[in-house]
């Protein structure tokens, strides 16, 4: 089988996930898009592992690990989103702008949860 097929599919899936991360407003949908990107990477790992006939099966082992990490990540991520939602009444990413220089919302909300806005950012950067 031509290696370009899985590689191109992975690249396209990654880009679709990327679009989702950048364009979606709901934090849970952003997390879903991150999953898409992770899957694209996994597909690459498996394809190259098969192509190289790696005796250690490093690609497949790494894929398994990525799946595990992704599961952990979605668990924590959802917990954070829930917490943000509980504090803010909203889980929209573009409304969590406490770190703005002159935020449109009250920048120092005493009820604010400091980790709320930054956590999705870290997630997204890790995914990127």
């Amino acid at each position: 089988m031509h290696l370009a097929y899985p590689a191109v599919l992975a690249a396209l899936l990654f880009s679709v996930g990327l679009y989702g991360v950048l364009a979606r407003r709901n934090a849970i949908l952003v997390l879903m898009s991150v999953e898409l990107m992770l899957n694209a990477v996994n597909l690459n790992l498996v394809a190259f592992d098969v192509w190289l006939r790696d005796t250690l099966h490093a690609g497949q082992a790494l894929t398994l690990f990525v799946i595990v990490v992704a599961a952990a990540e979605i668990g924590i991520g959802l917990a954070i989103v829930l917490l943000v939602y509980r504090n803010r009444g909203s889980s929209d990413v573009d409304r969590l702008t406490d770190l703005a220089e002159h935020g449109p919302h009250d920048p120092h909300d005493p009820q604010g949860e400091g980790d709320g806005p930054s956590a999705p950012e870290e997630k997204a950067e890790a995914a990127a």
Binding site: L18, V21, L22, A23, V93, D94, L96, T97, D98, L99, A100, E101, H102, G103, P117, P120, E121, A124, E125, A128
Partner: peptide, 20 residues
């Protein structure tokens, strides 16, 4: 430059990825 600090995470990542 401070004006670009909107606090919107998605904007930041967009710029970051565009740069990449």
């Amino acid at each position: 430059v401070r004006r670009t600090q909107t606090g919107n995470v998605q904007t930041y990542i967009s710029v970051l990825l565009a740069g990449s």
